[in-house]
Amino acid sequence: MVLLVSGLVAGLILAACSTVAGSGDIDATGRFQGVELSEPTPKPSFVLTDTAGQPYDFQASTQGKLTLLYFGYTYCPDICPVHLAQITSVLDRNPPLRENTEVIFVSVDPGRDSPEVIRNYLDGFSEDYIGLTGSMDELRTAEEALGVPAAILGDTSDPDYLVGHAAQVFAWAPDGLGYTMYPFGTRQSEWAHDLEVLANLGGER
């Protein structure tokens, strides 16, 4: 019986890894290739404003979905587009996965990123992506809920001011729990692997 079970587990692990091409650093003991959290973490609750100007209750609106969240700003040409492009590339190749995934971009630069600017930016990736922003206080509440330091805005009297913001993408499986996060430098193959694994953790509740 024990043998049978371990054989089954090995089969599952093999099946999970077979979709990954060319990734050299598969951790044979872990389910994930992203950075694993010390324990599964419930999805936080906060309300921001979406690109239609409507309040968006993060926890309620994403229930039962694989949820990815990233803080950034549209003026950032370096790190922000990489995360979004990688996620988009994986989802574009997997329509069923895409169907049950909510991608959320929170702009921490409300001074320049109006709802229209955010919508326009996200439409370059997908019209389905959700763009959020809010007052500095509201953003701080969301940042605190996620345990990241508050964004730091440069001298806003300079039109090209720069913004410091959390660089990692947060993820929650459909079961409402976060297991992993994805720092800048995450590889496409790691996204492809983990999104599939996360999508299969729990369904509608």
């Binding site: 720069l162 913001h165 660089a167 720092p183």
Partner: peptide, 20 residues
Amino acid sequence: YTTMIHETAISADGQASMKP
């Protein structure tokens, strides 16, 4: 176009920032 050389740094607590 206006150009600038920027350096992005990611701090220990995960904060990314560009500076000229």
